[in-house]
Structure formats: structure tokens, C-alpha cells
């Protein structure tokens, strides 16, 4: 398999093998016009297998989503064929409109326009709680 190397764009690397499609969906990459390559099960010295996403356009990706779904993912920015920025993602302190509060007594259930905001309450366990009602967040 041969995939063109990127001149200007983003490489999302070190994705846990099998999570590539989920990240593709969550980042809304299906809406892009440019070339996007998802590489599944690439071999990695560190991880054994990993997924990689290459995006042939200099877009901004939501690193909060990446950090939440798969902490440890790296985001490389490439310009004129050179690596100009490398970011390692981690669990973000706040998640805005990524998790939805499921507590029927929460104010977010009656006020639809309110952003669903979750705060990281336990980094080790990766636990998030709704800022309004303190209910634990669950991934959908």
C-alpha cells in the first residue's frame, strides 16, 4: 500500500489500534473535501500496532476530543513537507459538548441551549462530572 506523504496537513499518530474510525467520526473528518487516509494496524515499535490518520489540509483538530477518546495520541502539523509542530494529547480539564449529562434532574435536560460541560475530577480514573449536577459522565 502506498500513501502519498503530506506536504501541508495534519498527521494524527499513535492512535490505539482500532480507534482510528471512531476518531475519524468524532472529528467530523467525513465532511472534509481533501484527501484523508486512515491507516489501520500500522506497525509501531512502541505500541505493537497503531492507527494513523493523515489529512491533506492544514485544518485545526479538536485536541480535547482526541485527549478524551484516546489520551496519548499525537498531532503533527506539517508545512512544506516539514514537521513544524508536534502535540501530545492528554485528558483535558474540561469537555464542552462532548459528553451529555444523563441525569434527568439536571438543568441541562430542561434548558436545551445550555452547553454540556464536564470537569475532570479524577485523572487516574479518567472520571468526568457534569459541572451543574456533579453526575459522572459516561461515553456514549
Amino acid at each position: 500500500m502506498n500513501i502519498d506523504s503530506i506536504k501541508n496537513g495534519i498527521v494524527i499518530d499513535h492512535i490505539t489500534a482500532g480507534k482510528g474510525m471512531e476518531i475519524y467520526r468524532l472529528l467530523g473528518l467525513d465532511a472534509l473535501d481533501c484527501q484523508v487516509a486512515i491507516i489501520k494496524n500500522a506497525s509501531s515499535a512502541k505500541m505493537g500496532k497503531k492507527d494513523i490518520i493523515k489529512i491533506d489540509a492544514d485544518i485545526t483538530v479538536n485536541t480535547d476530543i482526541l485527549g478524551y477518546v484516546d489520551p496519548g495520541v499525537t498531532v503533527d502539523t506539517i508545512r512544506n513537507g516539514e514537521l513544524v509542530d508536534k502535540k501530545k494529547t492528554e485528558l483535558p480539564e474540561r469537555l464542552v459538548n462532548i459528553l451529555t449529562c444523563r441525569n434527568p434532574r439536571c438543568i441541562t435536560t430542561t434548558e436545551q441551549e445550555l452547553p454540556h460541560i464536564f470537569r475532570l475530577t479524577d485523572r487516574e480514573k479518567g472520571e468526568y462530572r457534569c459541572i451543574y449536577c456533579e453526575t459522572k459522565g459516561k461515553t456514549s
Binding site: R105, I107, T109, I131, C133
Partner: peptide, 26 residues
């Protein structure tokens, strides 16, 4: 307010202090 977190929403939007006088069972 009967809904949990409503006074917090009020506090985030008011320009004066808000005291929570009870939000549901929270």
C-alpha cells in the same frame, strides 16, 4: 429551583451574586 445546577447557571449569567437556596436534591 427543582433542577440540579439551575442556580449555577444563574450565577454564570447574573451580574450580581447568587445564593443557592436549594437545587433539587443537590
Amino acid at each position: 429551583h427543582p433542577k440540579e445546577g439551575a442556580p449555577m447557571v444563574a450565577a454564570m449569567n447574573a451580574s450580581i451574586p447568587v445564593i443557592n437556596a436549594g437545587d433539587g436534591g443537590h
